[in-house]
Amino acid sequence: MNKFTLHTGIAAPLDRANVDTDMIIPKQFLKSIKRSGFGKNLFDELRYLDEGQPDQDCAGRPLNEEFVLNLPRYKGTSVLLARENFGCGSSREHAPWALDDFGIRSVIAPSFAEIFYNNCFKNGLLPIILSEEQVDQLFNEVATTEGYELTVDLENQVVKTPSGEEMAFEIDDFRKHCLLNGLDDIGLTLQHADDIKAYEEKRRQSAPWLFDAIK
């Protein structure tokens, strides 16, 4: 999993409440055997004017020019500003996969659906909860300033605006630790790699026939 420590990037405002996971990544794309490559279908129904099909080359599809992520000024967005209850609906982990694959590193909203919120941490994405007023303020500032960038500092738990203003956010200590160090379940287990290696060495002595046999 990607580490998340400090990130600065273009912010884009997605001005809708209750964005559900089917909107983030529609169900026809779930049949894939992959967990990468969903970025081109992120917000598919909002982004394109036609209906998307799996395995389709999206380059030639008609774009919805008005959709925020299609506006030239938000090209390369990596911080998404959103409204309340972002990520509601089905529990599909494809939603954070799609955001991540698109290049989003952090989503800032007044509230998130719980499963989506959890799934973000498993995938190196940082969901940040700020107050309604703070989110409003960010929406206003981003609208009036082209090239508006936000800095997300996980270590110090603050979002910094271009003017230097800092907005503090809360996050569970354990989750913070895992993100800062890039630890998912596998990462956590690998913290005990020495124990595993020691066990394996013993096993190699006591049951050598289990090693280098299958090749």
Binding site: M1, I33, K34, R35, S36, D184, I186, T189, H192, D195, I196, Y199, E200, R203, A207, L210
Partner: peptide, 24 residues
């Protein structure tokens, strides 16, 4: 945490596991 001596893989439940490895 228990050590696993053998893993048997087939086509249905392994693709996203390999993909996960690659991505990380």
């Amino acid at each position: 945490l228990i050590y696993i001596d053998r893993q048997v893989l087939h086509e249905v439940t392994s693709p996203q596991a390999f993909e996960g490895l690659r991505m990380a």
